[in-house]
Nucleic acid binder design. Sequence first.
DNA 1: CTTTCAGCCTGGGCGC
DNA 2: TGCGCCCAGGCTGAAA
Length: 272
Amino acid sequence: MPELPEVETVARQLDPLAGRQLIRGVEILDPLLGFSEEERLRGRRISRVRRIGKEVVFQLEDPKGKAAELLLAVHLRMTGRLIYQGETDGSDRGDKYLRAVLELEQGKVRFHDMRRFGTMKLYESEAEAQPAGAEPLDRGFNAASIGELIRGSSMEIKVWLLRQDRICGIGNIYASEILHDCGIDPFRPASSLNDAELGLLAASTKKILRKAIKHCGTTFSDFQNANGEVGGYQKYLRVYQHSGEGCRHCGTEILRAVQAQRSTFWCPACQR
DNA sequence: CTTTCAGCCTGGGCGC
DNA sequence: TGCGCCCAGGCTGAAA
């Protein structure tokens, strides 16, 4: 489920629920997680929950206020969910996709992940948690900065948008949606975009991601937020999974193709 | 450096 | 019912 808007949604909903709570214990149910630092988490208080790149990060205070801050980062990959469960809710028995549980004072956070691609790890500092790629919702993200990141890349622009080491947070749904919004052909070499197009691309990136956050992300089958509810952005998708339908702008048939082993959806008339 | 591609894992959906 | 494909909001690492 996880692109930037979905991860942001989970973090925003988890923060008031789990924030300020003490971690009583951590249970790892799936050895494939490869996480064995439960003891370092026990007794720490969650100061806040937020998104960094595509990760949900629990910032943890030191119990005595002396040692350095610690950050627990969960990457949901394709099917991960973090769901807050209040004290009175049901048990975990019978949930075969439950991978880990954070036991808190008042309830628990369940890490549920059918395909088991998700990861859980610790960062020792704020700096270490920072992703390599630029944060697209930062004020400084604009035509000039995206142009600088792109410079010289002959990759197709849609494939380039998925590079987390350049821009973090955009995934396969929003890459197609962003390019449709700004009218840029997904097959164009990234370096072929002129300044005006870079400006449109930067603006559409912010616009689409912000709108998706406003609607709590996109749900097809897997995504659920921290309360086990679904997102609402799917009704605003213009091209993703709409191949064969008419473009909302011009009526031309939306096409699907494969780039870098991922589906791309676009309008061949609107996007040049 | 690039680009491609198999692989990680567990399904759902389709055609036969 | 079953089998064999293809598909899926991500990302890595090996190979060419």
